[in-house]
Design a protein around this nucleic acid. Structure first.
Length: 516
RNA sequence: CGGGGCGUAGCGCAGCCUGGCUAGCGCACCAGACUGGGGGUCUGGGGGUCGCAGGUUCAAAUCCUGUCGCCCCGACCA
């Protein structure tokens, strides 16, 4: 039992914060709502960036960078957009601090036009696309940027909703509506594939209702994930912006038909919220559980010894094991690297920056077990004198907390480790998927929806015709919202049925859930 | 912005109601010893303007007033 982590069943919210704290992923900052991402947490973000960025490049996108500050007037150019974001904007109004008569520093030199700290970059990027775009030959524009954004949320939670957060935002411009739609759905697929294969989080793809869509979008698509407490989390969005922003920012080009016309744009993004999703999807009462593809440390080796002689014997064996897993060269390189000698790191994969760490700190072995377990390291290897005598080590799996002795034969190779990691990666996805699937229920009536949200949570499928007014009413009464209109799920086709609220016949099925 | 809770060592807390001796405890930290296969034991040690500002009092962590901040719940949130 982890003594510093509250069990999920007692207080899920506290459990989540305890897991983050125990794994040292993040910390509160002096500014309310802002978060410090610590090295262990940032390594996860780096892994996400690395893999996603590859996927963006593979689909033809390039990276660029646009400024943090946006003229206030830009925000007002798209009506829905300003309405959606005005309430949570941070505004820069002055350029310097000066000592006043009372000796205290106060803002001086007010700006002529206040600047907004970007809550998202459609407006400034729209402005630039206006400047850059002339002809259909310039299209498509396929740009992504990795950056921070700021949304002054009333209430924040580490990773899930912070005032400032890191994300990527793709912004593309196309010649035709069809191309923009293809792009929007393509990126939704990229997100879904990434969430499932890299983060091992099963997601449902679908469209948002008008009530839930991005301010200024024609259609918003999303991937929705289910957390262990039965609440939904929007893990990524892809927006077809139609010509809304093109019109607001005058993004025009001369077409093949020799006519000046507005471009069709899209935007899509995922954020550090994914880290929160990953924590909540996989971790247990013992702490963080990381999918192998995300983990900065793949194995933590815990040596067991009493005397210096035993230490030497164990160290020699660990070196032998390391040579088989990372090679002679890396073993020597690691020793030359001169990091903390008590915690030497050996790169298993330099491309993904994933390492094996050996814990030589002068602590009890039990401490070390808890230490690495709480940090979600997929495997721990225990090596003591008894193991060395039998030419073996003890392999402990974080996922199911099992342990088994393994002989150190020629079979212990990088391929062996990769196979082990793949098995865990798949098992984690399957486990999460089983949980998710077991928590998809169908409501045949509004009463049933009320009952299910109150008693069971999870995703609730129902026949329903989206309507802002009715959705607001349902939200008020059940705290549940339409998470999405799913494309299709487990092969079950949307068949006609009675709208749970109005009773009218409809072919539209939606997924309701309480969400983060 | 509304409701609730809380500011005392790095962290977690007791003490406050009913003012009074040198402000305590646990964890963490440092030194040493015994230890070592899932959070060990002992000894010694360092660390505090009790959130801040006023007030009452012989005397304030404790009472009063004000103020600042944080956390949780709600409203809000592509």
């Amino acid at each position: 039992m982890a003594k510093n982590i509250k069990p999920r069943a007692d207080d899920y919210s506290q459990w989540y914060l305890d897991v983050i704290k125990a794994a040292q992923l993040a910390d509160y900052s002096p500014v309310k709502g802002c978060m410090v991402i610590r090295p262990e947490g940032f390594a996860i973000w780096e892994a996400i960036q690395r893999d996603l960025d590859r996927r963006f490049k593979d689909t033809g996108h390039v990276n660029a960078y646009f400024p943090l500050l946006i003229p206030q007037s830009f925000l007002t150019k798209e009506a829905e957009h300003v309405e959606g974001f005005a309430m949570e904007c941070a505004i820069v109004t002055h350029t310097k601090l000066q000592k006043g008569a009372d000796g205290k520093l106060a803002p001086a030199a007010p700006l002529e036009e206040p600047l907004i700290i970007r809550p998202t970059s459609e407006t400034i990027i729209g402005h630039m696309y206006h400047e850059w775009l002339q002809s259909y030959r310039d299209l498509p524009i396929l740009i992504n940027q990795w950056c921070n954004v700021m949304r002054w949320e009333m209430r924040t939670r580490l990773f899930l909703r912070t005032a400032e957060f890191l994300w990527q935002e793709g912004h593309t411009a196309h010649e035709t509506a069809e191309q923009a739609q293809t792009e929007t759905l393509k990126m939704l697929d990229v997100y879904a594939a990434f969430a499932e294969s890299f983060l091992a989080i099963p997601v449902i793809k679908g469209a948002k209702t008008d009530a839930e869509k991005f301010p200024g979008a024609v259609t918003t698509y999303c991937i929705e994930a289910l957390m262990q407490d039965g609440k939904a989390l929007q893990a990524g969005t892809s927006h077809n912006l139609g010509q809304n922003f093109a019109k607001a920012f005058d993004i025009k080009f001369l077409g093949r038909d020799q006519k000046l016309q507005h471009a069709w744009t899209t935007s899509w993004g995922v954020s550090t919220r994914l880290i929160g999703a990953m924590i909540m999807a996989h971790s247990d009462d013992e702490g963080l559980v990381l999918p192998p593809k995300v983990a900065p440390y793949l194995i933590a080796i815990v040596p067991i010894f009493k005397s210096p002689e035993e230490q030497q014997k164990v160290a020699a064996f660990i070196d032998k094991l390391l040579v088989q897993l990372v090679g002679e060269e890396e073993l020597a390189a690691a020793k030359a690297r001169q990091t903390d000698p008590a915690l030497p790191r050996y790169f298993f994969d330099k491309v993904t920056n994933q390492a094996i760490i050996v814990d030589w700190r002068d602590n009890r072995p039990g401490d070390k077990q808890f230490h690495w377990e709480q940090r979600g390291v997929p495997f721990r290897i225990e090596v003591g004198p008894r193991d060395v005598d039998q030419n073996a080590f003890v392999l402990k799996k974080r996922l199911d907390r099992s342990k088994e002795p393994v002989q150190l034969t020629d079979a212990i190779t990088p391929q062996w480790l990769r196979a082990q990691l793949d098995t865990i990666q798949i098992a984690m996805f399957e486990k999460a998927k089983q949980f998710r699937d077991a928590n998809i229920r169908t409501a045949g009536s509004y009463e049933e929806l009320k009952k299910l949200t109150a008693e069971q949570g999870g995703f609730i499928r129902a026949h329903f015709t989206p309507s802002k007014e009715i959705e607001a009413k349902i939200k008020e009464e059940t705290k549940a919202t339409v998470r999405c209109i799913p494309f299709d799920h487990n092969g079950d086709k949307a068949t006609s049925g009675k709208d749970i609220y109005t009773g009218q016949e409809t072919t539209t099925q939606v997924i309701f859930a309480q969400s983060y």
